[in-house]
């Protein structure tokens, strides 16, 4: 696919958004580390956990897309539809993070009880690399618009492997900035982060447009099975 670099850059620049949302987590992860090296180890393990979750849900999304495509053979191309949806989502997400879309603030009552948070907090503070890994694993499941948008993209790839690759690349893109913030604190100024976010938004929107165009092309080509071959198996005859 031509847009692999775009995904990575989207993840990389989009992680300025992650720093805002999840910066607290990485700082908490590093809080107990006695040295920079130990902290970096914890951060890496944490990030690995997060990326693992992304890859897993990418696999699930890719698999779902694959099934949808397989099931709808002969009818309208599910992959094309998925691509259109993913493109729309990406553009929407990009516009939102750039501040070009209306925001809705959800206010919650003060006594809001969040059992998930309980689990999360306990793991986040736990010592040991396993706890850091688990914390990363759980962070990956946190709701995030950007993740959803790329997830839709992963589904539209119509293959489990491509889905995994998409989310893996996205996760890898988010890694550098989060690692830096986690080990070095907040060296990025707010203004800088805002500029990066704007740039990321543009990249996400471009990805969205490409995806939309791809979807439109599929739609134009008409319905056809689009099962990518398994890289381990010999090509099947059509």
């Amino acid at each position: 696919m031509t847009d692999w670099p775009l995904i990575f850059i989207g993840g990389f620049l989009g992680s300025s958004h992650c720093v805002g949302m999840c910066g607290g987590f990485v700082l908490a992860i590093g809080a107990q580390a006695p040295s920079l090296a130990a902290n970096l180890r914890r951060q890496t393990v944490y990030t690995a956990g997060r990326v693992f979750t992304y890859i897993f849900i990418g696999a699930a999304a890719g698999y779902a897309g694959q099934r949808a495509t397989a099931v709808t053979v002969g009818a309208i191309s599910a992959q094309a539809l998925l691509a259109l949806v993913a493109g729309g989502l990406l553009i929407w997400q990009g516009m939102k993070s750039a501040g070009w879309a209306p925001h809705r603030f959800v206010t919650r009552s003060t006594s809001h009880f969040c059992p998930e948070q309980l689990l999360f907090r306990s793991v986040l503070r736990g010592p040991g690399l396993a706890a850091a890994f688990v914390a990363g694993l759980l962070t990956g499941w946190l709701p995030c618009g950007l993740v959803y948008a790329y997830l839709a993209f992963a589904a539209s790839s119509g293959s489990m492997l491509a889905g995994m690759a998409t989310m893996g690349l996205f996760g890898a893109g988010t890694a550098p900035l989060m690692l830096l913030v986690g080990s070095g604190g907040s060296w990025l100024s707010l203004a800088m982060r805002r500029r990066m976010l704007r740039l990321a938004a543009v990249f996400v929107i471009v990805s969205g447009c490409i995806t939309l165009a791809r979807g439109a092309t599929f739609l134009g080509q008409g319905a056809q099975p689009h099962l990518p071959a398994c890289p381990f198996c010999p090509a099947k005859s059509p």
Binding site: F52, F56, L119, V123, G126, G128, A131, F133, V134, L137
Partner: peptide
Amino acid sequence: AHLKLVQLGLSIFCTMNVLAFTMA
């Protein structure tokens, strides 16, 4: 260590792997 929670977390990790293989 929060052994129990970490065990739960590692179990989640393993489950995700199992799910991935099954999906494959």
